[in-house]
Design a protein around this nucleic acid. Structure first.
Lengths: 211, 211
DNA sequence: CGCACAATTGATCACGATCAAAACCAGTGG
DNA sequence: CCACTGGTTTTGATCGTGATCAATTGTGCG
């Protein structure tokens, strides 16, 4: 199935702790690879994708600066990790996390697992029950609040957002247009978002379809 | 908010390891309670529920015989646990899990967390993209395969299933009727399900809406 | 330039939500 | 035992949202 596994993971083994750059679209590791490296993002965005039985690609999570991905919950990675933007991040040996002592590394490990679980639950919260507009608004809101300034620029293709929110690209586009029209956000570039009015955005995120 | 917290958790502190019975509807603990006890189910079904901002009750997971719930991922429980059926389960002190040594208890702890994560991901898989029929069929299938015989009787109110799958009770009812009509399952009682034909059920679970 | 792919816009359609009501069942008390 | 009550399930009719189909525009890249 995932024939490209091996040569990719071998190009990635640098677990020295140095921050290294990765170009957009680059694959860090594949679902099923032996989980030997953990990554901490300094800049850029990474997506976690899975392929269902039908071979359909599905984005299940995004990782932002400060996030850790590739956490060794299982001996093998449970998803494929790809750079969405240009990424600078530091690879760490997964072995160090688990082996060395038990105290500090252990807590950071459970922290990371907790984060994974929290991310999974957040996605469910977004997907279940919420309308398309609420999903988009909620997504943009939570994504930016985890980051920095109000007027930060996210850079994620709409296709990835659609997959993550279990919507079609068309629906994502239309929802974004509504948000743009309402002045809550603006899009300087095609795949870049700026949040003008977090308040208004939060309205859209919860409001009962603003009827 | 959850004013009933205290007296409930105090009635539950028996962390000796004895299997104890709990009647249907009984609450084991509330979301936000201090996570002092872990439970392992011997018989019966338990549901994990959460209340969103709007106060809406939402079922986020089911636990079956053999499952562990109340895993101390955070210092406080992240959901409310209620008995769906009559339940027999053994309470354990959460402290023992974390404190004692680091070796065997630690692995079972991560096992339990892994299970939580897996459960969360399975729910997402069911909810995202799948049609109502696929969700129901997939749910019944995975629920029974985690259990025992083909012809086992599940006993879960349709309301809970609806909430778990992010559907309305009406839709659940109609989907179940289709499955009954197709002979894949039968329902001796109102809230009991028997799987006659796992094969056919699997068909419904994946098939592209059988057009 | 021209190619491939992402984003946009429009028109139609289907599925599930919603509204409304009836049937069903379990538990309670007369 | 039976009438009453509350909650769950069932059935039907209608409506709205997002998927789907189809086509155009836009954008980066060889």
């Amino acid at each position: 199935m995932y024939t490209a596994s091996k040569q990719v993971s071998s190009s990635v083994v640098v677990a020295g702790g140095f921050a290294r750059p990765f170009g957009p679209g680059k694959t860090f590791f594949w679902e099923g690879d032996e989980a030997v490296t953990v990554y901490r993002i300094e800049t850029g965005v990474v997506r976690a994708v899975k392929y269902d039985e039908a071979g359909e690609r599905e984005v299940i999570a995004f990782f932002k600066p400060g996030d850790v991905f590739g956490v060794p919950i299982d001996p093998e990675y449970s998803y494929t990790a790809e750079a969405v933007t240009a990424v600078r991040c530091s690879p760490l040996s997964a072995g160090l996390w688990e082996a060395s002592g038990c105290k500090r590394t252990q807590t950071t490990l459970t922290d990371a697992i907790r984060a994974e679980l929290k991310a999974a639950r957040e996605r469910v919260a977004l997907i279940s029950h919420q309308s398309s507009l609420e999903r988009i608004a909620g997504f943009l809101g939570s994504f930016s609040e985890d980051s920095m300034a109000d007027a930060m620029a996210l850079t994620i293709p709409q296709l990835d957002i659609a997959s993550y929110l279990a919507l079609t690209p068309e629906t994502v586009c239309r929802a974004l247009k509504k948000l743009k029209d309402s002045e809550a956000i603006s899009m300087p570039r095609r795949d870049a978002f700026v949040i003008n009015d977090p308040q208004a955005l939060a309205q859209f995120a919860h409001a009962a379809t603003c009827h």
